[in-house]
Write a protein that binds this DNA or RNA. Sequence first.
DNA 1: TTGTACGCGTTATCAG
DNA 2: CTGATAACGCGTACAA
Lengths: 342, 342
Amino acid sequence: MKKNIRTKATVHDVALKAGVSIATVSRAFSLPDVVKTEVREHVLNVAQKMGYSPNPAAKALRLRKTHIVGAVIPTLDYAIFARMINTFQEALATFDYITIVLTTGFDNSSVYDKAKLLIDRGAEALLVVGAIEDKAFEKFIRSSAVPVVSTYSFLKDGVVPCIGFDNYAATTSIMDYLVSLGHQKFAMIAGSPKGNDRQRHRIQAYVDCLAKNRLDGAQRVIKRPFSIEDGAQAMHEIHQLHPEVTAVVCNTDIFAFGALSECRKIGLTVPKDISIVGFDDADYSSRLDPPLTTIAVPAEEMGRNAAIALHAALTGKKKLHSEMLETTIKVRASATKPPKSS
Amino acid sequence: MKKNIRTKATVHDVALKAGVSIATVSRAFSLPDVVKTEVREHVLNVAQKMGYSPNPAAKALRLRKTHIVGAVIPTLDYAIFARMINTFQEALATFDYITIVLTTGFDNSSVYDKAKLLIDRGAEALLVVGAIEDKAFEKFIRSSAVPVVSTYSFLKDGVVPCIGFDNYAATTSIMDYLVSLGHQKFAMIAGSPKGNDRQRHRIQAYVDCLAKNRLDGAQRVIKRPFSIEDGAQAMHEIHQLHPEVTAVVCNTDIFAFGALSECRKIGLTVPKDISIVGFDDADYSSRLDPPLTTIAVPAEEMGRNAAIALHAALTGKKKLHSEMLETTIKVRASATKPPKSS
DNA sequence: TTGTACGCGTTATCAG
DNA sequence: CTGATAACGCGTACAA
């Protein structure tokens, strides 16, 4: 029909067809109230008909604003991050910003590369997960003037403002709970602490809590990749090597899922024979068998607040500052008093 | 120390400091072999030191290439999509493309808006989920020359090429399996069919399969939003209203998770009292209690293949064409013969 | 092999 | 209120 749209319409084309200058076309979009009503409506009409929309590259070039923010996270393939990013992205969208997500895997050693890539791509702000430990990355951030916020960890002396929670305190709270129940023989299923300060803090909390209560078990920290299968295997190992254990602290509900499953398989009844607790409060955790006692993490809140904070920083409304979010322990049925016989 | 980087270095700055023309700087990056080795190295060095990197907006404007592709999916907060997008994004990254993901919720009625947004933002290609049913969107695609691929459904006569699987055949296969086991009283837990052709095809397969075997039960299709809790409630309803049912076909493992959990709660033993099957083969499904019989969906494969196909189309290497991917039924323990007494 | 100069599509400045 | 025009930073004819 019409004309073939080889190359998209530009202000120029619209101006021509509407019989005005390109300046007026531009203004009809960006400064509507400075253009006479009927002219504006005419222009907008013509533009609409031609399928015109401003070229984002030209706009970005001229305005020095891409309206892009970047996020670098371990993986999307892990509900707790997907949930945060989902909210982050949606919140940013309401501010007319789009989000580009890059993943690193759980070892944060490539965050710097990904962050650089994002900034080279025009990201005006960045969300990262966990502490920034790469010195080069730190230097880069300090000299680059793009707002960066880190999530999932709350750090008093972090390189950048954090919107996260206190991993150490969270694990401490659930350890205290288990101790108050009477447990004395603990094990922990943890992720690799390499490049992952969340895991390190949780492990440290475990170790410290044991020491505080003059309990042994600091060596019973099983480190595994994050998967249900690995949680199951770790549970198996605990059962074989440390049959005295009455409470297993999992650093993610994924491990707990596997552990629960494995207990069923090896004939341990949870929580009668052994107590198991998780971390994250995944959507399925309340529907596990038995329902999992775990720590609820403010994933959506982190995403939303990070989006709001970054946007405020970008528009100069408010400097970035850290926010400490709360975790809550969800007491369900997977943990109870240790068996008498132990 | 050095100079404060108020505004990023440009070819101009680098040229000045390196004592060459801007053209040479540009060439040192884009056409390295056309510039004398020592000059190139000098320039690259200076650039490196100044923290120079080409402005993506200027580049995009000049080259008419943003190196961005867009994806519109229901939600990230659902493992099966997150998994696909994760792979999609990673594959595209190896081609130097970045991915922008927008979400619509499960009702696809806003795909058109999101797709337009993406293209206005410079996306050179698009991935969508499911059939394109919005006529306006269809028209837009036909006139816009950006490659679009749809995933999750394989459609013979789709508006755009599909990289997906046959939802109808998948459900048919698992229905046939259940029928062969001897089941006669079925129910289905489905998502809303509105704007969701995957659900419609699965429901249709269920209905047709019943008819084919002269079985009733076509009216026992419970439609719910996608959540574990909803799966549980649906199961509850089936148990109350249709106690004669011996096999429940869930259109996602999420429903099956809830259904299994609810059966435990109301005292039904799976699969002795009732058989339950799922769809997706989530990471947890083999570790449910009992392990879930379900349909494995090629999520990563769709993501990877879509990335490769889109990239090939973008570089003119190969026209987009549909790919029919396979699903496989994972026979595990949650389905068996119906109880004799029924 | 290198440099000059133009244009990609916008928006902002400045006259009118 | 509107129009002409100069950037924004880059890549690439074209000339040297």
